[in-house]
């Protein structure tokens, strides 16, 4: 069983890799913080990645 301990000053953990989690992580990195994004499934993106189009621009959600 692998074990690892990481230490980075002022890191932030974001639990959940949907649109909210990803956006929070991106903003935090821009604000100068190291972020651990913890996602329970195998990919990030969450439900928004399943959407066909989003209102009102009809952009693809990916």
């Amino acid at each position: 069983m692998g074990k690892g301990m990481e230490h980075r000053a002022g890191a932030v953990m974001v639990v959940g890799g949907g649109i909210a989690g990803v956006q929070a992580a991106l903003d935090l990195t821009e604000l100068g913080y190291y972020v651990y994004l913890v996602e329970k499934s195998a990919v990030v993106g969450g439900v928004m990645a399943q959407l066909d189009k989003t209102f009102p621009t009809n952009d693809c959600s990916l």
Partner: peptide, 19 residues
């Protein structure tokens, strides 16, 4: 591959697990 146990030292936590 086996499950990995990881410990993180963080200053703040943001919970965004969705619905």
């Amino acid at each position: 591959q086996k499950p990995k146990e990881i410990e993180l030292n963080v200053g703040a936590v943001i919970l965004a697990p969705g619905f």
